[in-house]
């Protein structure tokens, strides 16, 4: 453990400022709370929001898991896990069930979360209306008035053009029947896991200086239409390593002749299943 810096790198005043923002976010589910995001020693866009949120909630007794694309061993997950190992000395784990805090980029673990766990999402663009309206002054007004018609029109236009809602990740959700929220770029496959999750879900956008939250057991509804209900991705294949037909599969190109195989994106889930099958 590196003792040159405060526990979890940030000074206590900054953590206090972050905790206030987090408390406000929990009190108003799905609402984006502006906060005084700090310049972190990792680049913007690489998880600085998630890192600040984790730094604000982590304690000496916590066990931290960090995943990127569902895997613990992708380079950026390794880098962030090391950062906290260095600055806090807390235990780290790759097992979803053992973790008290899970910082993630782009996935929610396949293993169901439980009471007392905290999910920390890294968010690149927190504003769900951003690609419909680039101005913050306008989108804040739209949220205040719950004026989300533009998003429904966008989804309808998808259906008119493609026959489907063509959004496949970062699929917009309505939280607690009030605020439209970006779930961060997780595949829509993971959206149902957010609904009434027993875990506390915190979202940090460092560059955009916003924090938002979904408290445990809160409704998270993916937008859809009665005649075009929300649906998640499905695969014809099973995982080539553990045989799962339930999990999100990554496609791995094996040669330049069109050869490919499908494996779980959640490395812990896949590994545990393989271990069980060995026994």
């Amino acid at each position: 453990m590196n003792t040159g810096y405060n526990f979890a790198y940030l000074d206590e005043q900054t953590k206090r400022m972050l905790r206030r923002a987090i408390l406000k976010a929990v009190a108003i589910p799905g609402y984006q709370v502006p906060f005084g995001s700090r310049e972190m020693p990792l680049p913007y866009g690489w998880g600085t929001g998630g890192i600040q949120v984790t730094a604000a909630v982590i304690g000496a007794d916590d066990t931290l898991k960090v995943i990127d694309q569902g895997a613990d061993d992708t380079t950026n997950a390794v880098s962030i896990r090391r950062f906290f190992a260095r600055t806090t000395g807390v235990a780290t784990t790759e097992k979803t069930v053992d973790a008290t805090i899970i910082q993630t980029r782009h996935r929610i673990p396949e293993t169901p979360l439980s009471d007392g766990q905290i999910m920390v999402y890294q968010v690149p663009i927190p504003e769900p209306l951003r690609w419909l309206e680039p101005r913050e002054t306008e989108t804040r007004k739209m949220h205040a008035l719950a004026d989300y018609g533009a998003m429904h029109v966008k989804l309808y236009e998808d259906i008119a053009r493609y026959g489907h809602i063509a959004t496949t990740y970062d699929y917009p959700v309505l939280v607690n029947d009030r605020y439209l929220m970006r779930p961060s770029p997780i595949p829509k496959f993971d959206n149902p896991k957010m609904d009434h999750s027993p875990a506390l879900q915190l979202f940090g956008a460092g560059r955009e200086k916003r924090i938002y939250a979904v408290p445990p057991y809160t409704s998270v509804k993916s937008l859809d239409f009665e005649d075009h209900p929300f649906e998640v991705q499905r695969w014809d294949q099973a995982c080539a390593l553990c045989g799962s037909t339930e999990s999100f599969l990554d496609e791995v190109v094996t040669d330049d002749q069109g050869g490919r195989m499908y494996v779980c994106s959640d490395s812990d889930y896949c590994g545990e299943r393989q271990k069980d099958q060995m026994q």
Binding site: E39, T48, T75, H106, P124, T168, P185, R207, E251, S265
Partner: peptide, 25 residues
Amino acid sequence: NVEASGFVQHLKLPHYVDFQSELEM
């Protein structure tokens, strides 16, 4: 430029999952 450089270059990070979702679609 610290914000811009970070966000432009974050495209180097893996996006397998989102790309897989787009492929499927």
